[in-house]
Simulated scan of single mutants.
Amino acid sequence: MSKAKKSIEVEITEKKAGNGKTVSEVYIGKQFLGNVREDDNKFLMTTAKNESFKVNSFDEGIQELIKEFHLHH
């Protein structure tokens, strides 16, 4: 028997950082997954555990945050 597919609602909110750049915060429900921000034409993803990684695109950063979330749940 396979499990039924369950849809998950991902929320992305944008906030201004102290340096004037935009930071996109990613949530599933009320749980904070991390954020993605542009840094000198590249993107930097930071998890909820304050681990930072460079990614090639905004979409890749979002995907990696969701993968990280699912690995630990």
Results as ranks from 00 to 15, higher is better:
13 T>S: 09
13 T>W: 01
13 T>D: 05
14 E>D: 11
15 K>Q: 13
15 K>N: 10
16 K>I: 15
16 K>E: 15
17 A>K: 05
17 A>I: 01
17 A>F: 05
18 G>Y: 10
18 G>N: 14
18 G>F: 06
19 N>C: 05
19 N>V: 06
19 N>A: 04
20 G>E: 07
21 K>T: 13
22 T>A: 13
22 T>S: 13
23 V>M: 06
25 E>M: 08
25 E>A: 02
26 V>W: 05
26 V>T: 10
27 Y>R: 04
28 I>W: 04
28 I>N: 02
28 I>G: 00
29 G>E: 01
30 K>R: 09
31 Q>R: 12
32 F>N: 01
32 F>Q: 01
32 F>K: 03
34 G>S: 06
35 N>E: 14
35 N>V: 00
36 V>H: 01
38 E>Q: 07
38 E>C: 01
38 E>P: 03
38 E>V: 00
40 D>W: 11
42 K>C: 10
43 F>M: 04
44 L>A: 09
45 M>N: 07
45 M>Y: 07
46 T>Q: 09
46 T>D: 03
47 T>Y: 01
47 T>M: 04
47 T>G: 07
48 A>F: 00
50 N>C: 06
50 N>M: 08
50 N>P: 00
50 N>A: 11
51 E>K: 11
51 E>P: 00
51 E>M: 08
51 E>G: 00
52 S>A: 15
52 S>H: 08
52 S>I: 02
52 S>F: 04
52 S>M: 13
53 F>P: 00
54 K>H: 11
55 V>N: 02
56 N>I: 06
57 S>V: 06
57 S>K: 06
57 S>D: 12
59 D>W: 04
60 E>M: 14
60 E>R: 12
61 G>Q: 05
61 G>K: 01
61 G>E: 03
62 I>K: 12
62 I>Y: 07
63 Q>S: 15
63 Q>V: 06
64 E>T: 09
64 E>S: 11
64 E>I: 11
66 I>E: 12
66 I>V: 15
66 I>P: 10
67 K>T: 13
67 K>N: 15
67 K>R: 14
68 E>T: 12
69 F>P: 00
70 H>V: 08
